[in-house]
Computed example of a mutant assay.
Amino acid sequence: MNRTGRIALVLALVGVVGMAFRVSWNALRDIANAVGADQTAATLYPFVVDGLMALALVATLVLAGRDRTFALRVLGTYTAASLVLNYVHGLVPALHGATVDWGRLADWDPANWALVLLATSLPVGSIYFGSDLVAKVLHHRPAPIPTADTNAEESTETEVNRSTADLPESTPAPITATVVRVPDLVAVDYLKSALPLKPVPSIAPAPAPQIPSRASAAVSTRSRRATGRVPQAARSARPKRTPAQLLTEARTATTGWPDAQITAEGIRREVHTSPANARMLRDTLLAERAAAAVGTT
């Protein structure tokens, strides 16, 4: 609808509301005279009831949320009250000529008391509810009109929150312990006895290093720390042991050892030999113990 059509619609609405107010104004004025209001008060009484209805309607269009609900309740309450008073005015013809008894709106006393209470409480309610609605309208802050930048920021924030919330929680993988069964010594001895023994290789003694006659250690008055590998000429000469000597020392060192303790590393540390000799000595000692165990059985 264009602007001209809207203006015409609003003007028509104002005309209809004005005529309806004029019709209701006559009934409410007579009701005010019946409950004891003077001429001026009776003239202003319709503005108290129907005027608050108009104010509540405007507040409904401006407010939002709970405040809008409150304005709708005020509008509905005062609309119902005005309808009841107009209905009573139509039922009691004596109110039209102001010939009714003062304070008498109905023949039945409970109904009369209720109508008088309703007619006299509406001005007080207009003061309270009207002030509250005006305060709510003045303190109302309309929501800002969303722009393109605002929509972009909100969409970005929504996507970030959604992606963050959809991430699954990382759960640690269950740790399963691997059980390693240590073979029994009896089974090990049986396997050693069943397997053929390997012949012990003969180890040729390494030739003694030839120290040149011209080599002489340099004498220095101050100590120097070793910065590299010690040259072969500066090492102390140590006699090489034959395989038989190594085997004898290994037998002596492992006399009280169980079979499970006889390892190449243990023999190497006790006899102070190379890893290759230590492995050879380990195999020889285990073979001898296996042969001894077979002989005793």
Rank of each mutant, 00 (worst) to 15 (best):
5 G>F: 06
7 I>A: 15
10 V>G: 02
11 L>C: 05
14 V>L: 13
16 V>P: 03
19 M>I: 15
21 F>D: 15
22 R>C: 13
24 S>M: 10
24 S>W: 07
25 W>K: 08
28 L>T: 12
32 A>D: 12
36 G>W: 15
43 T>E: 06
51 G>H: 09
58 V>A: 07
60 T>F: 03
61 L>Y: 06
63 L>D: 00
66 R>P: 04
69 T>W: 07
72 L>K: 05
72 L>Y: 02
73 R>E: 11
74 V>Q: 09
74 V>R: 10
82 S>Q: 15
84 V>F: 01
88 V>H: 10
94 A>R: 14
96 H>T: 07
97 G>S: 09
98 A>M: 09
101 D>N: 12
104 R>P: 06
104 R>F: 05
107 D>A: 11
108 W>G: 04
110 P>R: 01
110 P>N: 00
111 A>R: 06
112 N>Y: 07
114 A>P: 01
117 L>I: 05
118 L>Q: 13
118 L>S: 12
126 S>A: 15
126 S>W: 14
128 Y>H: 13
131 S>P: 02
135 A>D: 13
137 V>T: 10
139 H>N: 07
142 P>K: 08
145 I>D: 13
145 I>A: 12
148 A>H: 05
149 D>N: 07
150 T>R: 03
150 T>D: 05
151 N>S: 09
154 E>C: 06
156 T>S: 13
156 T>K: 15
158 T>Q: 13
161 N>A: 14
171 T>P: 05
173 A>M: 13
178 T>W: 05
183 P>N: 00
184 D>P: 00
185 L>W: 02
185 L>D: 05
186 V>H: 00
188 V>Q: 01
190 Y>D: 04
193 S>R: 02
193 S>V: 01
195 L>V: 00
196 P>Y: 01
199 P>R: 09
207 P>Y: 00
208 A>Q: 03
211 I>M: 11
211 I>Y: 11
213 S>K: 12
213 S>F: 08
218 A>K: 09
222 R>D: 08
225 R>Q: 10
225 R>E: 12
229 R>I: 06
232 Q>G: 09
240 K>E: 12
243 P>W: 03
245 Q>E: 15
249 E>Q: 09
251 R>A: 04
252 T>C: 01
252 T>K: 07
254 T>I: 03
262 I>C: 06
266 G>Q: 13
273 T>K: 03
273 T>N: 07
279 R>I: 02
281 L>D: 14
283 D>A: 02
286 L>T: 06
288 E>T: 10
289 R>F: 03
290 A>Q: 02
293 A>R: 04
295 G>R: 11
